[in-house]
Amino acid sequence: MTAPTSVEEYLAALPAAAQAVLLEVRAAVLRGMPGATETIRYGMPAAMLGDRYGLHFAAWKSHAALYPVPVFDGDLEAEVAPLRSGKDAVHLRYARPVPADLVERIAAAVAARRVP
């Protein structure tokens, strides 16, 4: 299998259930990062803020993931913490509804940190 060259190609290669979840994740990331562009970095979709990356999102066997997600302050971190896996990854299990509002707020918080 060759590496995808576009986000659409990446999504099209996913199983239906993973594709549906990642489409929701993608939409929430882009709502949280208005004006972001998309590309493939490290073999996965990434939302770019100018020439800087914002968030990567990917599909795995049992979950979708966001990378890198910094540690936030206060209430946002309290919501994100149970979804963390490792230092800077957030895992969204396919068996659970996508917390689209939370993904959007994560993306907005990451975008706020990436502003020069």
Rank of each mutant, 00 (worst) to 15 (best):
24 E>R: 14
24 E>H: 07
37 T>W: 08
76 L>N: 01
26 R>W: 00
80 V>F: 10
85 S>V: 10
88 D>H: 13
88 D>L: 05
22 L>T: 05
82 P>Y: 03
28 A>G: 13
43 G>Q: 05
27 A>L: 03
41 R>D: 03
44 M>N: 12
58 A>K: 00
44 M>R: 10
87 K>C: 07
49 L>S: 03
45 P>Q: 06
37 T>A: 08
41 R>T: 12
16 A>I: 04
22 L>V: 13
43 G>N: 09
81 A>M: 03
50 G>A: 00
41 R>E: 12
62 S>W: 01
66 L>I: 10
52 R>T: 11
19 Q>C: 12
56 H>Y: 15
84 R>K: 08
65 A>T: 15
27 A>K: 10
40 I>K: 11
90 V>Y: 10
86 G>P: 11
35 G>L: 06
48 M>R: 12
53 Y>P: 14
46 A>G: 07
59 A>G: 15
55 L>S: 05
58 A>Q: 02
24 E>Q: 15
74 G>F: 00
45 P>W: 07
84 R>P: 11
85 S>K: 15
72 F>Y: 07
81 A>L: 14
91 H>R: 15
35 G>Y: 11
22 L>H: 00
92 L>V: 09
67 Y>R: 11
21 V>D: 11
76 L>K: 07
78 A>W: 01
57 F>E: 04
50 G>F: 01
45 P>K: 00
41 R>Q: 14
74 G>C: 02
43 G>D: 04
17 A>V: 14
29 V>P: 08
73 D>Q: 12
22 L>W: 01
36 A>V: 10
65 A>H: 02
16 A>C: 01
50 G>M: 02
36 A>C: 00
65 A>E: 07
25 V>W: 09
42 Y>K: 05
41 R>N: 11
26 R>H: 12
62 S>R: 11
81 A>T: 13
75 D>Y: 03
68 P>M: 02
24 E>M: 04
64 A>Y: 08
31 R>W: 02
42 Y>N: 13
34 P>L: 08
70 P>I: 04
20 A>W: 05
62 S>A: 14
19 Q>V: 01
79 E>I: 06
73 D>I: 00
49 L>C: 00
87 K>N: 14
72 F>H: 01
23 L>R: 15
76 L>C: 10
67 Y>P: 08
27 A>F: 05
75 D>A: 15
49 L>T: 04
60 W>V: 03
28 A>L: 08
73 D>G: 10
86 G>W: 01
17 A>W: 00
